[in-house]
Computed example of a mutant assay.
Amino acid sequence: MHLTALPCAPVPGRLPEGPVWHAGRGDLLWVDITAGLVHRARLVDRDDDSGLPDLGPGTTVAFDRPVGAVAPCASGGLIAAAGTSFLRVDEAGVATEFARPAVPDDGTPRRMNDAKCDPAGRLLAGTMAYDATAGAGALYRLDPDGTVTTVLGSVTISNGLGWSPDGRLLYYADSPTRRVDVFDHDPATGALSARRPFADTGSAGLPDGLAIDTEGRVWVAVWGAGQVRAYTPDGALHAVVTVPASQVSSCAFAGPDLDLLVITTAAEGLTAEQLAAESHAGRIFICRPGATGLPVPPFADDPEHFPGGSTTSHDPRGSA
């Protein structure tokens, strides 16, 4: 099956990523990683006969550091994987440091990249070196009490988190491997085991962010290919969504019925000639893929108390 996605109204960003549907508010969140921005917008009617909605005017919060991903919190507000910390962001956009992983002190600058909550509301978030030094990243688990556990080391570019409908499998991509792997996932403890290959993007490009539908299919953004590829639970290619921008960074199911696929793309790193040829690079795209996504679990925080977290607040809009 071949599908085509349409561009949405928001202006292009540098490195848009991490789209997530906030069901409680009925809007879409996404980040612009290196610009340190978190965007929020609602779906609106589109002025054509495509049958697809657009994204309307929204709001933006600017941080003083890169923001790899955000997720809604059960208590309201957001949890952000930003810089090399986890920040709790309230409804006014004020951030409080909640927890910080033990990032190696070896002189290699790192930042958070992709992050998502598992079905129990624990946040998994990965890091990478700014220069993509091989093996310099890791995958961490942030529990609601503020405990941070390293669950995977020697990662280069941590990406592509998503769980099977029964919560017993985790799909994950270390992008330079050009492969999506699958782990057995213990829903009770969050433990991972039995890592094995799931799907290989080969010469087409690098696997980036991904999303899972109710049939257990895995929709993978393929950086460099201008595509989202959907794979069946046994790893067979099911569908290809064509995107008129090569650097496809992530995707997520959105809308009240979770029947829309929202796709982020990036302009960062493209030459002037490439940008002239890819006028939509950095935009968000949307299509109706004939599949329904899984609800997004919020971070299962306690609104009254954050054991293990700092109580120091700061305005995220300050300069670095």
Rank of each mutant, 00 (worst) to 15 (best):
S249I: 01
V148C: 05
Q227A: 14
S246K: 07
Y130V: 14
D47I: 00
S154N: 15
G282L: 12
L78T: 05
Y172H: 14
G56V: 08
S75D: 12
A115I: 05
V182Y: 00
R65L: 08
S158P: 09
G235Q: 00
S313N: 08
G93V: 01
L161R: 10
I286T: 11
T264F: 01
G190S: 04
D166A: 10
G93S: 10
C287F: 07
F86Y: 13
D64V: 06
L270N: 07
G308E: 01
N159E: 04
D105P: 04
V61L: 13
Y172E: 03
L169A: 15
V262N: 06
T214G: 11
G121N: 10
L15Y: 11
D213A: 09
G13M: 03
A129L: 03
D48Y: 10
A80G: 04
V20T: 14
A300G: 11
R317F: 03
T147G: 13
D213W: 02
C73E: 08
H314L: 14
C73I: 01
P303Q: 04
F86H: 04
D143S: 14
G190R: 04
Y140M: 05
W163L: 11
P165H: 11
G68I: 06
P297I: 10
L37S: 08
L28E: 08
I284Y: 02
E17N: 00
L170S: 05
L87R: 09
G153N: 09
R40F: 06
T232W: 07
P197M: 11
S193L: 07
T59V: 12
V11Q: 14
G26T: 04
T108S: 01
L124P: 02
A138Y: 00
T4S: 12
G190N: 07
C251F: 05
T201R: 00
A74W: 02
V70Y: 01
D145L: 02
L294A: 12
V296L: 13
Y171F: 12
T133D: 09
